[in-house]
């Protein structure tokens, strides 16, 4: 006597359900074959490794002020005074060292390269964290809406989602920040609460189409309960579009955090955020001083990370959803 699981597996293979073990290899192979997706993956890997190793690879202490060396342009070689408080003899306490600031310094004489490297942590953390919360909120709601398809629960959930979409991109997040005040934990909250609707919508659409598919019907005919159908059949098969959505969705919160921090609502000192670096460059260095490096390099960092996730996401969509090939 075969178990339900074995019977299901046989039927699923006949009827075209997903086999997850193979999917992973397909993805890796697909990325390898697509130059743009591969490029995006490499960019992301570089930033992830940088973020993890940040405290050990920064050329200078990103928080330390060096007031005599403020506003230095890139590739400046200067002498920096070093104070060693462990020395008892005052003559030995002060010494000078030759240093090079590859990307220049900001208004506090802090090394811009080091600050960008440390800033990668916050940016990626916000991206991943916000997307996770959006999925935790959006996937169950989408499943619920899709599974009750057209009934009251569905209508209620989707109307609420519509209500969120009415507000332009950052406006609701700005509103939440205005009430809750600035700070990273509020950014998490604001970006997560405003972004779950997209996830719910995709999950619902997938659920609606999957529950009519043959292998789900077959499983139901074999006596599987709703919960089993949801978690063993619908969710695994909806994983591909959700993975694409998650990858593409990482760009939004990263840009959102940068924008909110730029407006002064996000990261607070001493936290290092790329958006705040640009805001400080704007307020501390008037345009006519021509200190372009202070705002250029953090902006390039934001651009590269967002581009990496977009390229990888586009690639994944090509790989996992052949219907869209050549479409976007």
């Amino acid at each position: 006597m075969k178990s339900l699981r074995e019977k299901e597996r046989e039927r699923m293979q006949e009827l075209g359900g997903v086999q997850q073990e193979r999917q992973f290899k397909v993805i890796l192979k697909g990325i390898w074959e697509r130059p743009l997706a591969l490029f995006g993956t490499i960019v992301i890997l570089i930033f992830v490794v940088t973020a993890i190793l940040a405290p050990w690879i920064v050329p200078h202490n990103p928080y330390r002020m060096d007031l005599p060396n403020r506003h230095l342009p890139p590739l400046s070689e200067v002498t920096r005074q070093v104070v060693d408080y462990t020395q008892e003899d005052p003559d030995l306490m002060f010494s000078e060292e030759e240093v090079i600031y590859v990307l220049g310094t900001d208004h506090g004489g802090r090394c811009i390269l080091s600050r960008i490297i440390m800033g990668a942590r916050l940016s990626l953390m916000i991206g991943v964290g916000v997307v996770m919360i959006r999925f935790i909120l959006g996937v169950p709601l989408g499943l619920l809406a899709g599974f009750s398809g057209g009934k009251f629960t569905d209508t209620l959930i989707m109307r609420i989602a519509d209500g969120f979409v009415v507000f332009p991109d950052l406006l609701l997040a700005l509103g939440i920040m205005a009430v809750r005040g600035p700070g990273i934990e509020n950014i998490f909250f604001a970006l997560a609460v405003t972004g779950w609707t997209g996830v719910a919508r995709i999950t619902r659409a997938e659920t609606l189409s999957l529950r009519e598919r043959d292998f789900v019907q077959a499983s139901r005919a074999l006596g599987a309960k709703n919960r089993r159908i949801l978690f063993r059949h619908v969710l695994p098969n909806a994983a591909a579009p959700l993975l694409v959505m998650a990858t593409l969705g990482l760009a939004g919160p990263i840009l959102g955090e940068a924008a909110l921090s730029f407006l002064g609502l996000g990261a607070q000192p001493p936290q290092i955020s790329w958006g705040r670096m640009i805001a400080q460059a704007r307020s501390q260095s008037p345009i006519i001083r021509g200190r372009w490096w202070q705002m250029t390099f953090p902006g390039i960092a934001i651009f590269l990370v967002v581009m990496g996730f977009n390229l990888l996401g586009d690639g994944l969509r090509d790989i996992l959803d052949p219907r869209l090939k050549g479409g976007g």
Partner: peptide
């Protein structure tokens, strides 16, 4: 991919 505030600056 470009942050609009940065592009403006």
């Amino acid at each position: 991919c470009v942050p609009n505030f940065w592009m403006g600056l």
